[in-house]
Design a protein around this nucleic acid. Sequence first.
DNA 1: CTGTTAGCGCCTTCAC
DNA 2: GTGAAGGCGCTAACAG
Lengths: 339, 339
Amino acid sequence: MDIDELARRSGVSAATVSRALNGRPEVSAATRARIVALAAELGYRPNASARTLASRRSELIGLLWDTDYRSGGRQHPFLQEVLIGLKAALSDRGQGLILLPIVPPDDEAGYVRLARQYTLDGIVMMGVDQHTPQVRALLATPIPCVGLDLALDGPRTASVGSDNRTAAADAVAHLHALGHRRIATITGPLDLWPAAERLAGYRAELARRRLRRRPEYEVAGDFFAASGAAGMRRLLDLPSPPTAVFVAGDAMAVAAMQAATDTGRTVPGDVAVVGFDDIDAAAMVRPGLTTIAQDYRRFGTTAAAVLAELAAAPTTDEPRSVLLPTRLVVRESSGSTAI
Amino acid sequence: MDIDELARRSGVSAATVSRALNGRPEVSAATRARIVALAAELGYRPNASARTLASRRSELIGLLWDTDYRSGGRQHPFLQEVLIGLKAALSDRGQGLILLPIVPPDDEAGYVRLARQYTLDGIVMMGVDQHTPQVRALLATPIPCVGLDLALDGPRTASVGSDNRTAAADAVAHLHALGHRRIATITGPLDLWPAAERLAGYRAELARRRLRRRPEYEVAGDFFAASGAAGMRRLLDLPSPPTAVFVAGDAMAVAAMQAATDTGRTVPGDVAVVGFDDIDAAAMVRPGLTTIAQDYRRFGTTAAAVLAELAAAPTTDEPRSVLLPTRLVVRESSGSTAI
DNA sequence: CTGTTAGCGCCTTCAC
DNA sequence: GTGAAGGCGCTAACAG
């Protein structure tokens, strides 16, 4: 069942079938209706390769997702949800999603070649280092690229992420409202966009509420559990330890809670904890972890929409970014009563 | 940079370039070496669409992964790891991975058409119901299909999964070795292959160790947390409650532990628990959950290898399946001492 | 509005 | 061992 067969059966030429099915305006309503109906009835689907070859557009989006970068073990707690959103939004637009292999660092043109090889219409990146030569080369290209939790820069790029700054401020506000005045934080790696924004939000909210900002209350973590435990121990050893800690990632937060418990403190009694991400475990540990939930599915749907906009828009130097709202999920770790 | 350009620069015809790059035997070693070197130097990559159109092979594998099927919330704790393995193994073979959209149940030929549309060389399925018309139609086809944790049936299909039966037996053996004699289980939905196998392994090991099998010790769960908690409560309310429970999934196991704790029991003191899956939370909860770890990455690499075999092998009626080894991860929930 | 004619970039017979 | 020619299935100019 190819286009010629369909053309024969509908009594028109292949060109007309192509036009009718692709929504071209030059076809009469009657012919189009007839062709569309017949195509549906016969289950005709144009061959993707032939279509791509002729039109130079593939309706294919590439996903660049580096499983090695900083993922020493389990990372990207959200890949699955992002994929769900992305897949749904793309297929609504008639687009497909292809997973790109990781190219070695010395193959500078690797991604650009992959994009050409598959005639990709756009690329979604997550969990990659946008400063590597291979990625920079890709970003410099007019191929639409959107970064998830990644601040991208290029003629046709955009970034999608949560409004981490506001979210962190919400966390601090929540703790403050519960009566806490000595609020510390354990950060992520500050060269990562979300980590930096969360710290900025923490600081901003302290200032807004006229709480003193103490350098020793800002402990550096790396999003992994061990750094959360170490950070908590360090905070609790302070002469004037905090009564609450905003931890920039849930894996660290859970470990931080355990570190507190292990050293004889109670959570939230002695120290309240608020995390970030709402990983599965947040609801499974005791006490349940109060945390910031991100709408990962929407990361995906937004990425698909932004990609379409980028493809239509002219190239530009203006950095574009979309910030998504988050939600504070209150569980037991922040305590329900003031201190 | 297309094949003609490369041909011109290497002083041969496009046909020879094609043969050289595709490892055809008819090319002289010298010409091949020259062409391969030049191709590498110029970074030539044949256009995927043109190649697929001409050769009728795409080197593309489709991933069928239903995000709705039984995934009321968070499921498939292993998608990410599977993808890592799959992507790595496929790209080693020069193949790509494309995520297939879910087709509506009334579109019986949907997947078959998708396979043709993209000229897919094979399909990996996970988290789908293989009894639906759309999937059955695909399986009936000579297109290579491998199911992860799915017992598939068709002329060119195979199944890859853990050796769930042995794994469950290991769990029971572990509990028995710790001194437990009254060992119960909370199962998954028994129409799912892994759940049925785990129950079979539990029963087999009881028999091997001459432990009495009691019907009231086999409680039905559905892999979700709530059913784990309910199952544990029911077991503990028994006149002669078990001293150990093998829970067929970690989400249920964690909830089961909490249910035990909530009703005044201690874990592992009053009741020991062994789970299945080794989800992230297993190491985060207290007590840490003893569980069976599956090698999900290997699911992916194995699927890629099996797909290649299926493509080369003739169609057959023999069901093929590959069972992967698992690993018992001992933490605190099973206790380190006998009762 | 519709048909005819060329390719899109590559592989693959068929000659040589 | 290598080249020439045709075609994979579709889209996009160009006519009409």
